[in-house]
Amino acid sequence: MRLRILLAFAALAVPLGLALRAEGAPAPPELLSQTALYDASGAIAPGNRPFQPQYPLWTDGAVKARWIRLPHGKKIDVSDVDLWRFPEGTKLWKEFSFGGRKVETRMLWKTGGDWVFASYVWDADQSDAHLAPPEGISGIVEIAPGKRHSIPSLADCAACHRSSPATVLGFNALQLSDDRDPLAPHGAPLKADDLTLRSLLDADVLEPARKELAIHPPRVRENDPVARAAIGYLSGNCGGCHNGTGPLARLGMNLLHGEAVEPTASEPARLTAVDVGGGFLVPGHGPETSRRVAPGAPERSALLYRMKSRRPSSQMPPLGTVVRDEEAVQLVQRWIEGMGRP
């Protein structure tokens, strides 16, 4: 607790209003109701389509709803199947609820050739939400005994979304695949109007129209169902930063699933994490025994150690969560243990 107080105290001294919008880019509206998410009646506006990534990002058990708005007549450039480029004017929203109450809605807005990040904090009467300050809001609501959810700062938004050339992290080929993973932690069943690759192709909003994505829907290239789900989870939850093209590529650990490879290619996570040493050593182990993922040995696996941790110096992800994802921990532990069996 004293550590958190010290770190929070230090963070207070950070200058406010970090300039993370491109110069000249418009400011996001002050109210969520002004962002075109809703129509005049308060319902989701026509043209804003819901979607559910099959490997959703863990946010301490928040119930999430997501929508995307593509400008009329515009298409997503998927010429690089792993790096979708969205048309000017695209908006994505993600609503976070805890205990049945809406807490915040985040928005990504492509404008001026770049992305604008915004978080909106819901009013007590749940009628509208106000733009959060650039520094975020620490500990806005209690979500578990002694644990509180925080509205991210713009710097926090950028820390994840700018760590991938894609910027948009939950709307891509694997996440929207029609071949859904039944073991994906916290994966929700698709609703009739949820967008998937097939419905995007049917709506003719992908350019080029990659029909192969419907014929052979993307899936993690692992035969074992537990391995498939574990690597899919790591891709959805860790691959935003730990990928092969962003600033952290120099660490040599790529947990992001990609489609632009041979169908028989090994998953990057298997190549760069399994039985590979890393910079972080599991306490009590040296560089000879600590591994990112130690086959058959969860106790020597730094990745699992950091997934379990919710202490500032070791937890992964390093932000956006204060409660560990027990279901995912169990899944990844089973995967690691399974690799030790003949």
């Binding site: 010290l6 770190l7 230090a10 963070a11 207070l12 001294a13 950070v14 970090l18 710097a155 820390a159 994840c160 760590s163 930063c241 600033p247 952290l248 660490l251 500032p312 110096s313 070791s314 937890q315 390093p318 932000l319």
Partner: peptide, 20 residues
């Protein structure tokens, strides 16, 4: 600027006076 290791990771720890 952020006080995060590698710019995105764990907090940079005391006594590094990064806020200044």
């Amino acid at each position: 600027r952020t006080g995060k290791h590698e710019g995105v990771g764990r907090p940079i720890l005391p006594p590094m006076p990064y806020p200044w």
